[in-house]
Simulated scan of single mutants.
Amino acid sequence: MRSPVGHHPRLERIELEQGLIAYRCPESGGHWIRAEHYWKWHSTRKDTPPASTPALDEENHPVSEYDDAVKLCPDSGTVLTRYRVGHGHAFRIDRSTTGSIWLDGGEWEALKAENLHHTLHLIFGAPWQKAVRDQARDETHRLQLIQRLGPDLHARLEALHQELAHHPERAAALALLNSPLKHEPLPE
């Protein structure tokens, strides 16, 4: 079985976690996890909810020179499909039509650090991917507002937005903000 990246060296069988068989690329440090091995390992796990995923600094994201490369499934030869992890992670993971997973070097460790490694299968689901798209859309909107309003005004408005969120006179405050400005009378 050959690696889907680099010069396609033979994958080395390893135990990625206790009871989780994977195949490691000696060139890239990536991991191939067959679906049957993941589900067998997953079935022995105690239910531990994933930790909340705070936004990470860009420098903490694993960066792979193979991130944009077309990767082929080591088992079936089909093209792997990329899925954005999101939730503070800038990288994507790849999945085969067989259900098996390719993680570029450092991605398993990043997922494990955020306690997402044992719920890896959720990343491929529609609810997860919708949340990733919604998060990206919201961030784009926020950046457009900052560009249009300027960072100072945006920050002040964001603080006011937070303050008014649960204020008992929120409606009156919004009415004031929406009312036309009155001009000061000119001095005589």
Rank of each mutant, 00 (worst) to 15 (best):
residue 2 R to F: 14
residue 3 S to T: 10
residue 4 P to S: 12
residue 6 G to W: 00
residue 7 H to A: 11
residue 8 H to C: 12
residue 8 H to E: 08
residue 11 L to W: 06
residue 13 R to C: 09
residue 16 L to F: 04
residue 19 G to T: 04
residue 20 L to Q: 03
residue 20 L to S: 00
residue 26 P to L: 02
residue 27 E to F: 04
residue 29 G to K: 01
residue 30 G to T: 04
residue 30 G to L: 02
residue 31 H to R: 08
residue 33 I to P: 06
residue 35 A to N: 10
residue 36 E to D: 11
residue 36 E to P: 01
residue 37 H to G: 03
residue 42 H to P: 00
residue 47 D to S: 04
residue 48 T to Y: 02
residue 60 N to E: 11
residue 61 H to P: 03
residue 64 S to W: 02
residue 65 E to T: 07
residue 65 E to N: 07
residue 68 D to E: 13
residue 68 D to S: 09
residue 69 A to V: 06
residue 74 P to T: 14
residue 77 G to S: 03
residue 78 T to M: 12
residue 84 R to A: 13
residue 89 H to V: 06
residue 90 A to V: 09
residue 95 R to S: 12
residue 98 T to K: 12
residue 99 G to E: 08
residue 101 I to Q: 04
residue 102 W to T: 07
residue 102 W to N: 03
residue 102 W to A: 05
residue 105 G to M: 06
residue 107 E to W: 05
residue 108 W to K: 02
residue 108 W to S: 01
residue 115 N to Y: 02
residue 116 L to C: 06
residue 118 H to L: 00
residue 118 H to E: 11
residue 119 T to R: 14
residue 124 F to Q: 07
residue 125 G to V: 04
residue 126 A to T: 12
residue 129 Q to I: 14
residue 131 A to E: 15
residue 135 Q to F: 10
residue 137 R to S: 03
residue 139 E to M: 08
residue 141 H to C: 00
residue 142 R to I: 07
residue 143 L to G: 05
residue 143 L to A: 07
residue 144 Q to N: 09
residue 149 L to G: 04
residue 153 L to N: 08
residue 153 L to P: 01
residue 153 L to A: 07
residue 154 H to Y: 14
residue 157 L to V: 05
residue 157 L to D: 02
residue 160 L to D: 09
residue 160 L to N: 09
residue 162 Q to V: 07
residue 165 A to Y: 09
residue 171 A to H: 13
residue 173 A to T: 00
residue 173 A to H: 15
residue 175 A to D: 15
residue 177 L to T: 03
residue 178 N to R: 10
residue 179 S to T: 15
residue 179 S to D: 14
residue 180 P to R: 06
residue 181 L to R: 00
residue 183 H to I: 14
residue 184 E to W: 15
residue 187 P to Q: 09
